[in-house]
Amino acid sequence: MAQDRITAPLKLLIIGGSAGSLTVLLKVLPALNYNVSLSIVIVVHRKNTPDSTLADLLASRTKIHVKEIEDKESLLGGTIYLAPPDYHILFENNGAVSLDFSEKVNFSRPSIDVAFESAAEVYKERLTCILLSGASSDGVKGLAEVKRNNGNFAVQDPSTAQAPYMPQQAVNKLHPNTVLTPEAMIGFINGL
C-alpha cells in the first residue's frame, strides 16, 4: 500500500450547504478565478432526481469546469466537483474520491460531516471548508475535525443566510475566525 502514502499536492476547498445555499453558490461561483492548484468540492443536500441538473446550472454560471464526482476519480486543480445526490463522498490518501452508499448521517446523504471529516485527516492544512446556509445540524462536527487537523474553515455570516441555523451552530460551537458574507466569500476563495 506504498502508494497510499503519497499525498496529493493540491489544495482542497469543500463547500457544504443545505437550505438556502444555492443562492449563495450562484452569487459566488461566477466571480471565482481559475486556480490550477485548487480543487473545489461542493456538498449540498438535495433531492435525488433521475436527471440531476444542478451541475448544468452551476456550470452555466462559471468559467471553471464543473462536473459531478465519479467513483475513484482523482481530483484535479482548476475544477469544481459536485457530490452526487444520495452518496457520501470519502477522500482517499492518493488524491482520489470514493462514493459511499452507507447509512444517512444527520438524515442526509451526502452528509457534509462525512465529507469534512474524511478530508480533514488526508488534506490537513491544505484543506479549507466553508459551511453555508442550512436548517440542518450537519457540518458542525466535520468543521471541528477540520480544526483539529489544522485545516482552515469559514462560515457564512448567519445574518446573511436564508436558513441561519447551520452556520449559527458552527459560530456558537467553534468560534471561527472567518465569518463571511457571500460577497466577502469571493475574495476569500480567490485568495486561497
Binding site: M1, D4, L90, F91, E92, N93, S98, D100, S102, S118
Partner: peptide, 12 residues
C-alpha cells in the same frame, strides 16, 4: 480487505 477503499475502511 487489503484492496478495499482505504477511506471507506477507515470510516467504517
Amino acid at each position: 480487505f487489503t484492496e478495499y477503499s482505504k477511506a471507506s475502511l477507515k470510516r467504517r
